[in-house]
Nucleic acid binder design. Structure first.
Length: 103
DNA sequence: AAGTTGACTTTCG
DNA sequence: TCGAAAGCCAACT
């Protein structure tokens, strides 16, 4: 097959994000690692364009904080999903100790 | 073709 | 705990 449209990377990212079980989350770097790459930023870019087609709220930063500009929406979704959250310094974030999903 | 940007990560101070 | 800098990959200009 020789028609790499370039969406190959995006498709892979979306596939992995869609495979994240409910109540769990993955960091951008973890998704990239699952692809065999370190393109955490590229993953974020894909999510910004196609994120609406996948449970984007299950993808958070390595620090446990949700994506920038969508923190409120993400936390609301995560809490509704039963994702283990933790409050630190008055800031709610995902408890990566237990919520981090392994591909 | 080269430089900039981005829903990132990690290390140092 | 916070801030800044370097490293990383893909897309856009």
């Amino acid at each position: 097959m020789s028609t790499p449209t370039g969406d190959e990377f995006a498709e892979a990212v979306l596939d992995i994000v869609a495979s994240i079980p409910k109540g769990r989350v993955m960091a951008y770097g973890d998704v990239a690692a699952a692809l065999g790459s370190r393109a955490a930023r590229a993953v974020g870019r894909v999510m910004a364009h196609h994120g609406s087609t996948v449970p984007w709220w299950r993808v958070v930063r390595a620090s446990g904080d949700p994506a920038v500009g969508k923190e409120e929406r993400a936390l609301e979704r995560l809490r509704a999903e039963g994702t283990p959250l933790i409050v630190r310094d008055g800031r709610a974030r995902v408890d990566m100790r237990t919520a981090r999903h392994r591909a």
